[in-house]
Amino acid sequence: MATLQTRSAARLMMTPAVLMLFVWMIVPLAMTLYFSLLRYNLLMPGMEEWAGTLNYRYFLTDPAFGAALLNTLLLVGGVLLITLVGGTLLALLLDQPFFGQGIVRLLVIAPFFVMPTVSALVWKNMLMHPVYGIFAWIARLFGLQPVDWLSSLPLFSVTMIVAWQWLPFATLILLTALQSLDEEQKEAAEMDGAGPVSRFIHIVLPHLARAMTVVVLIETIFLLSVFAEILVTTNGGPGTESTNITYLVYAQALLQFDVGGASAGGIVAVILANIVAIFLIRLIGKNLEA
C-alpha cells in the first residue's frame, strides 16, 4: 500500500516532531555532561576550568548524596507500597455494585487532578499543622498529643502527601484491569468451591500483575522527580531529612549556583532513571507488538 511517494511524505510528516525532541534531548544533555566536568560557579563568572571527575567525586561522597539517595528510595518505595495496596483494595471496592458508585469513583480519582503545590500546601497547613490542623484536632479528640508532622516526620509526611496524589492513578488502572477480568472464570472458580481469598490470590491477582507492573514503572518515573511537594512543605529539611535527589540537584544549582556540581548530580539522576526506564521500555515494547 505504501508507495514511494507516501513513504517520503510520511518521513516529512515525522521530521518536525523527531527533530524537536532530538534537539531537546541531546543539546541540554550534552551541555550537562560538559558542565559536569568543569569547575563552574555562577557566583564566580569567568573562572570556569576543567575539573575532570572532581564534581562526581564531590557529589557522590557528599553525605547529602547518600541521604538523598536513601530518601529517594524510601519515598518511591513508600508511595509505591501505599498506592499498590490501597489501589488494589479501592479497585476491588469500586468493582462492587453499590449505590452512588459513579460518584464515589469521581471522589476517589479527584486528588490526581489537584496541582502538586495545592495539595502540598493544603496538607501542610490545614491537615498537618500541629495546632490548627485537622489531624491535631483528631488527636486531641482522643486525648493524644498532636504531632508536628512536617518537623518530626518530614519524609513520612511528604510520602503521605505524594501517595494521596498517586492513589487515584493506581486505582484507576487496576480498576480498568479488573473490569477486563472474565466474569465466567470467577464464577467457575466459585462453583468449584473457591473462597473469596483463594479466588483473589489465584485468579484476580495474576490477572492484575501486568497492570501492577505498569503502575510500578510509570509511578517510579514520576516519583523519582518529586519536587514541588518538597519545595513548599519542608524545603528538603530539617537538614537533609526530606531531600531527594531531584531536590538536591535543584538546591546545588539554583541555591548554591554550583553549575558543575549540580550537573554531575543531574547526570547521576539520569543514570538512576535509566535503570528503571530500560524495564519500562521493554514492557511497553512487548505490548506494541501484541
Binding site: 519536587f227 539522576a269 535509566n274
Partner: peptide
C-alpha cells in the same frame, strides 16, 4: 520507543543548561 525514552529523562538532568 525513543520518543518514550525522552519522557523518562529526569528534568534535573537538563535543569542547569535549560536555565542558563
Amino acid at each position: 520507543m525513543w520518543m518514550l525514552s525522552t519522557k523518562m529523562l529526569p528534568p534535573v538532568g537538563v535543569l542547569v543548561p535549560i536555565y542558563l
